[in-house]
Design a protein around this nucleic acid. Structure first.
Lengths: 97, 97
DNA sequence: TTTTGACTTGTCAATATCTGTCTAATGTAA
DNA sequence: TTACATTAGACAGATATTGACAAGTCAAAA
């Protein structure tokens, strides 16, 4: 599930309209629509605003948002697993220092 | 080890000058210097050119390059491990489809 | 059928970021 | 000093991102 699908689900559970949420975020309805549909990526501040409006845990939502960005970067790669292994090695070495 | 450190190491092993490699890549020496020192990120085509000039396996080097980009995105995050877990879950679901 | 309301799409200008080069600086060995 | 390799900083041009607007679709209500 993408970030957009996720927040759409939450918004619909809470029976909120795009226009209501967008208004509280101070953005255009069209932009929020695009974010939910994945044709635009939310900015960090927008992800934070969404957490607030939808009453979600901010850090959790931001993690989900960041994961989405990474998946987006990787989605057309051939050896995703291999790349992620390298990432983990690099991260492990970083954290040791 | 970062992408830049890695290619610098290889270049020095081969006793090539920045200017020689940069020239073969059709970029300014200063730019290659920055890439090696990590103050600039190589573009994909530049990573490919480096593989060629330094006679490295192109796919391997590109994987390393991509991993570097991801590490760069993650480096200031708090819960990197958690984020990577989410990424892996998302990727697994993607590949099942 | 017409209207209404929710949502979506395409386009565009403004802005932000990225890129590569140039010049000047630094370092170093002869 | 001179010569050469590398690095730093600043800049303009290229690209990408952003948010808004207007027009579109669609379904349900009137």
């Amino acid at each position: 599930m993408t970030f957009g699908e996720y927040i759409r689900e939450i918004r619909e559970e809470q029976q909120l309209l795009l226009r209501e949420v967008a208004s509280q975020m101070n953005i255009d309805t069209a932009l929020l629509s695009k974010i939910e549909r994945g044709t635009r990526m939310a900015r960090k501040e927008q992800a934070e605003a969404l957490a607030k409006v939808l009453k979600q845990n901010k850090n959790e939502l931001l993690q989900f948002w960041m994961a989405d960005k990474i998946v987006f970067m990787l989605k057309d790669e051939k050896n995703i697993t291999e790349i992620l292994k390298i990432v983990e090695q690099k991260i492990n070495r970083l954290s040791k220092k």
